[in-house]
Write a protein that binds this DNA or RNA. Structure first.
Lengths: 350, 350
DNA sequence: TTGCCATTTGTAAGCGCTTACATCGCAAAT
DNA sequence: ATTTGCGATGTAAGCGCTTACAAATGGCAA
């Protein structure tokens, strides 16, 4: 009897093999492809595995199999309900398929994002979830060179070589604007998240501009304020926009959080929503339903997007299938914050 | 046959060593403990690393070093702003220290949580973040046996052998209740998250009961409804509680989300908050500030908690330091939803 | 000069697992 | 009876890295 490793380490594949009276290959096979092992051997090995409370060593497995069963998600921030929702769904699907999720947030900073992506790859992620398409081409090359499957979420436009699960931000925003224009709004202002590194935000603005143009209005007349993602910022932006004379009859917001801030600001200014000014959001998170008036907004299927993204990624990795583009439908949710422009709009000034 | 193994042609440590004219050990050392290598060699090796765009293989490194630099977080759900906040902070500190975060959510299900914990360990997590203390002792044994450092967040009571970064849920809820009682409230009802597997929720209820008793009231008289974590559920619970006669003058809620639902229900019932009925929350998430009336609630330093949790874990792993218990302070945030019981409380019945 | 020590670098033994390939039985086919 | 084929199992070669230990080098006190 050879003495084993001096310290009481965890049982290894070899320990199991010895105890079960088979080779390590057989143990490995019963764990990874049970159908290649005969019924009898399989149950004997499994019993031993349980008896020894064996659990495969992650590093060794990753090294030998060149697979970690781990997927990375790089998102702007978890503190944004839309990403939290999507991530939760992404993670659920991963777990249901025996995989695990790595998460990193970039705070909307391209440099940090790039760093995080490289870290994910270095950590052996088998695939990566990214938000939006806009980023340095170099990082795409890096990913391609490393053969790391990628799925882009939150946008569906302009993606060809990669998988994506998104929706048409421009079209959705355009439709909401068109609806508002149909209600009689002509003086429309927009509060957007910073568009510099955010293709979704940019697309939404573009959609509204396009709707304006289609209705014969000049898109350049639309006051546009860009700001950070927070209720307070939405509030401040709204106050500033309300200084214009004549005032806008509608303030569209790039997301529900900014819209919530706008609604609050309106209250503070003594303006009634929607009688004095209409406000719209985008995303349809719970927040949109609890404020008063509740927000008319665009519903985005965040959970579905996250879930499908995981499936797309898994398919690429496990079945080595080709990238696939999926576009999801959005729809306008009509609540109380949008109404035809009211009569009090100008009289109440000052 | 050509093995289509994806990441096959990446440079290895050995490639770098050869190109730099040194041994693999030297390259490894330059990467992991640069101060053990002479200036000249170090720069030469680093240059080669950059030239070859070398990146260490994660599996090999984990196997040889028995470390992954990866930490797991097992939380109830990311769709809850309080956990999202905490996680974001946790992750940031990890990244700042060169580590990566694995995330799994349990949906408040102990069986799933246990599974996720085991998965994290199997995935080679160097440490794990857990929410609350209540779970099968067996899983704690498992963690101890595997020598996996753990940090418990969200509660600070009753933890001794493990690190924790939390606050006193019972005390905080008790103080808020005491304040309400001081304002004159006697008929207090409570809407709680399910307490069965949630020690935080249970502690909050206990705190209120304790305050009641201290004020000479019978804690058993307090109507208590347990429900799921959602605005809608808070709404339904509130409606049900309002059927009582005489009606409660204050409905305390175990968290802000339930409170937001309660406020909405009050509006629907034509009740003014706080004139007809007061409502309080717990957590102080943004939601508390955007609804009207804004919620009087307990502020919990979620981000700080997440950040400190990461530091506690890192300290245990890197410095092999002993578990440490940290208790954070909470404080009551006074807004508009709590006021002395009003005169209309009973008259409006019927 | 010699000896000793500190510093720098090299050698090589694993770490625990997967998997290509070899082997072995045994039933079906010839 | 011999051959063939195939499923089940074993053998052993790595996978790419870390690190204990050995070796080489050079400075300096004796």
């Amino acid at each position: 009897m050879e003495p084993k490793s001096p310290k009481s380490d965890l049982p290894t594949l070899e320990d199991v093999a010895r105890a079960a009276g088979v080779s390590t290959a057989t143990v490995s096979r019963t764990l990874n492809s049970p159908d290649q092992v005969s019924e009898g051997t399989r149950s004997r090995v499994m019993a031993t595995v349980r008896a020894l409370r064996y659990s495969p060593n992650f590093g060794a497995r990753a090294l030998a199999a060149k697979r970690t069963n781990t997927y990375g998600a790089v998102i702007p921030t978890m503190e944004n309900a839309i990403f939290a929702r999507g991530l939760e769904a992404f993670q659920k699907v991963l777990v249901a398929n025996g995989a695990t999720m790595l998460v990193a947030s970039s705070s909307y900073d391209p440099a940090i994002e790039e760093d995080q992506i490289r870290t994910m790859v270095a950590r052996g992620a088998d695939g990566i979830l990214l938000i939006g398409t806009q980023r340095d081409p170099e990082i795409y090359d890096f990913l391609k060179e490393r053969h790391i499957p990628v799925v882009i979420a939150w946008t569906g436009t302009g993606v060809t070589a990669l998988s994506c699960v998104g929706f048409d931000n421009e079209d959705a925003a355009g439709k909401l604007a068109a609806k508002a224009i149909g209600l009689g709004h002509r003086r429309i202002a927009f509060i957007s998240a910073y568009t510099r590194n955010n293709d979704r935000a940019r697309d939404r603005v573009a959609g509204v501009r396009h709707a304006l143009a289609t209705a014969g209005l000049d898109p350049c007349d639309m006051p546009l304020l860009e700001t950070k993602y927070s209720i307070q910022c939405g509030r401040d932006a709204f106050v500033e926009l309300m200084h214009a004379r004549p005032r806008p009859t509608l303030v569209m917001c790039g997301n529900d959080v900014l819209a919530a801030g706008a609604v609050r600001a309106a209250h503070e200014l003594g303006l009634d929503v929607p009688a004095d000014v209409s406000i719209t959001g985008f995303d349809d998170i719970e927040l949109a339903t609890v404020i008063s008036p509740a927000l008319t907004t665009v519903h985005v299927p965040h959970r579905k997007m996250g879930g499908l993204a995981a499936e797309a990624l898994l398919a690429q990795v496990r079945d080595n299938s080709a990238p696939k583009q999926t576009t999801l439908e959005t729809h306008i949710v009509v609540r109380q914050s949008l109404a035809p422009p009211g009569s009090r709009t100008n009289e109440m000034a000052d």
